[in-house]
Amino acid sequence: DETGKFLVLSLYDYQEKSPREVTMKKGDILTLLNSTNKDWWKVEVNGRQGFVPAAYVKFL
């Protein structure tokens, strides 16, 4: 199980638009929880879990 094993870097600021999403700032290091959807990845940032656009992050 690779859940929570990968870190990704936020390339852009992102403001959550729904309760299922999370806000991140450019340069944030996020824990990747799920990347099965090619468009939206589930991450943990600042103690919160939610989705961010996959195009806004990259693997470290």
Rank of each mutant, 00 (worst) to 15 (best):
residue 32 L to W: 02
residue 13 D to K: 02
residue 56 Y to V: 06
residue 42 K to C: 15
residue 60 L to W: 11
residue 46 N to R: 10
residue 33 L to R: 03
residue 2 E to T: 14
residue 59 F to P: 14
residue 37 N to E: 10
residue 45 V to I: 15
residue 17 K to Q: 14
residue 11 L to Q: 05
residue 13 D to W: 03
residue 7 L to H: 10
residue 25 K to S: 09
residue 16 E to A: 15
residue 46 N to V: 04
residue 5 K to R: 13
residue 31 T to M: 12
residue 8 V to C: 13
residue 20 R to L: 15
residue 39 D to N: 12
residue 14 Y to L: 02
residue 59 F to E: 10
residue 4 G to A: 13
residue 25 K to Q: 10
residue 11 L to I: 11
residue 16 E to T: 08
residue 26 K to A: 13
residue 11 L to S: 04
residue 46 N to P: 03
residue 23 T to E: 03
residue 41 W to L: 07
residue 60 L to A: 07
residue 36 T to Q: 13
residue 39 D to I: 13
residue 2 E to A: 14
residue 11 L to T: 06
residue 55 A to H: 13
residue 39 D to Q: 11
residue 9 L to T: 08
residue 56 Y to H: 07
residue 51 F to Y: 15
residue 59 F to K: 11
residue 29 I to A: 03
residue 56 Y to E: 03
residue 25 K to P: 01
residue 51 F to G: 00
residue 16 E to S: 15
residue 22 V to I: 14
residue 25 K to H: 10
residue 32 L to N: 00
residue 10 S to D: 01
residue 9 L to G: 02
residue 38 K to C: 11
residue 19 P to D: 13
residue 20 R to D: 14
residue 50 G to W: 03
residue 54 A to V: 05
residue 26 K to L: 05
residue 51 F to K: 02
residue 54 A to M: 04
residue 48 R to M: 08
residue 59 F to T: 10
residue 30 L to M: 15
residue 16 E to L: 07
residue 54 A to I: 04
residue 10 S to N: 03
residue 13 D to I: 04
residue 16 E to F: 05
residue 22 V to Y: 02
residue 8 V to H: 03
residue 22 V to N: 03
residue 43 V to T: 00
residue 37 N to G: 10
residue 28 D to I: 05
residue 6 F to E: 09
residue 31 T to N: 09
residue 13 D to M: 03
residue 53 P to H: 03
residue 27 G to V: 01
residue 9 L to W: 06
residue 55 A to L: 10
residue 59 F to M: 15
residue 28 D to N: 06
residue 49 Q to S: 11
residue 52 V to E: 01
residue 52 V to F: 02
residue 42 K to N: 06
residue 9 L to Q: 11
residue 20 R to I: 12
residue 1 D to I: 14
residue 22 V to A: 05
residue 47 G to S: 05
residue 9 L to C: 12
residue 1 D to F: 14
residue 44 E to S: 09
residue 27 G to Y: 05
residue 39 D to G: 09
residue 27 G to M: 02
residue 43 V to M: 01
residue 43 V to R: 00
residue 57 V to H: 00
residue 60 L to S: 07
residue 46 N to Q: 08
residue 59 F to S: 09
residue 50 G to N: 01
residue 40 W to F: 07
residue 27 G to D: 05
residue 42 K to T: 06
residue 42 K to D: 03
residue 15 Q to W: 11
residue 16 E to K: 14
residue 28 D to E: 11
residue 32 L to R: 00
residue 21 E to T: 08
residue 12 Y to I: 11
residue 10 S to K: 04
residue 4 G to F: 13
residue 18 S to Q: 07
residue 38 K to W: 07
residue 35 S to I: 09
residue 4 G to T: 13
residue 26 K to M: 08
residue 52 V to H: 01
residue 34 N to L: 08
residue 27 G to Q: 01
residue 44 E to P: 00
residue 55 A to Q: 12
residue 48 R to T: 07
residue 19 P to A: 11
residue 30 L to P: 01
residue 12 Y to W: 10
residue 44 E to N: 05
residue 42 K to H: 11
residue 49 Q to T: 13
residue 15 Q to C: 12
residue 27 G to L: 02
residue 8 V to Q: 02
residue 15 Q to I: 15
residue 26 K to H: 06
residue 47 G to P: 00
residue 20 R to G: 15
residue 25 K to C: 10
residue 6 F to K: 12
residue 11 L to H: 03
residue 25 K to L: 08
residue 52 V to Q: 00
residue 47 G to N: 08
residue 54 A to K: 06
residue 40 W to R: 02
residue 19 P to N: 10
residue 33 L to F: 03
residue 9 L to S: 05
residue 14 Y to S: 02
residue 19 P to G: 09
residue 11 L to G: 04
residue 4 G to D: 11
residue 25 K to V: 09
residue 33 L to N: 01
residue 50 G to A: 02
residue 7 L to T: 08
residue 1 D to V: 14
residue 57 V to G: 00
residue 24 M to C: 06
residue 43 V to W: 01
residue 28 D to L: 05
residue 20 R to K: 12
residue 29 I to V: 12
residue 33 L to T: 04
residue 3 T to P: 13
residue 15 Q to R: 09
residue 40 W to V: 01
residue 34 N to D: 15
residue 44 E to R: 07
residue 53 P to D: 02
residue 39 D to W: 15
residue 7 L to Q: 11
residue 20 R to C: 15
residue 45 V to Y: 09
residue 37 N to P: 03
residue 23 T to R: 05
residue 49 Q to C: 11
residue 36 T to D: 15
residue 12 Y to R: 13
residue 7 L to K: 12
residue 57 V to Q: 00
residue 55 A to I: 12
residue 31 T to H: 09
residue 8 V to F: 07
residue 25 K to Y: 09
residue 21 E to V: 04
residue 11 L to P: 00
residue 59 F to G: 06
residue 38 K to D: 10
residue 39 D to E: 12
residue 58 K to F: 10
residue 32 L to P: 00
residue 23 T to A: 07
residue 52 V to W: 02
residue 21 E to Q: 10
residue 54 A to W: 02
residue 38 K to Y: 07
residue 47 G to V: 02
residue 24 M to T: 04
residue 47 G to T: 04
residue 57 V to N: 00
residue 40 W to Q: 02
residue 35 S to Y: 11
residue 7 L to R: 09
residue 40 W to H: 02
residue 53 P to A: 03
residue 23 T to P: 06
residue 17 K to N: 10
residue 55 A to G: 11
residue 58 K to G: 13
residue 41 W to P: 01
residue 12 Y to V: 13
residue 30 L to S: 02
residue 26 K to V: 08
residue 4 G to R: 14
residue 36 T to H: 11
residue 2 E to Y: 10
residue 24 M to S: 00
residue 40 W to L: 03
residue 45 V to R: 11
